[in-house]
Amino acid sequence: PPTSTSPHSSPSSPSAGLPPFFMKGSIIQLADGELKRVEDLRTEDFVQSAEVSGELKIDSSTVERIECSRTPNAVIIQFSVGENKAQVCVEVLVEYPFFVFGQGWSSCCPDRTTQLLALSCAKLSVGDVCISLTLKSLK
């Protein structure tokens, strides 16, 4: 069975239980120290930051399935993660944004994401390849 996990949450979320850093205009620091707004991030920013960090590894996580959740305004997304195609399920609010390789921010309900966070999003669909992270274990 797929592993269940949940992405970040924060008690100081501005709206709908989402972390504050997804709000348009939030300042993000890349691993090399460069500052960018969240809406200006590109795929290479994540890839290069992971390379610099040394502790984190970027994985490709393909959306396999999107199902309704019992929780209001939430969905369960099943990902196939990394080379081993590990099956991982996450339960998130429909407006939660994921970063899709070569495309940018995407959510299950882009209109709601834009309404709540002012962050422009594409529609997250089955087959999309999202950026995820793996923590490299210490040797």
Partner: peptide, 25 residues
Amino acid sequence: NVEPRSVPVFPWHSLVPFLAPTQSD
């Protein structure tokens, strides 16, 4: 006196979910 509020800066990895178990190289 009102002190200027500093703008929060978030680390890049905050934006990316950890979806995979810890791996070794």
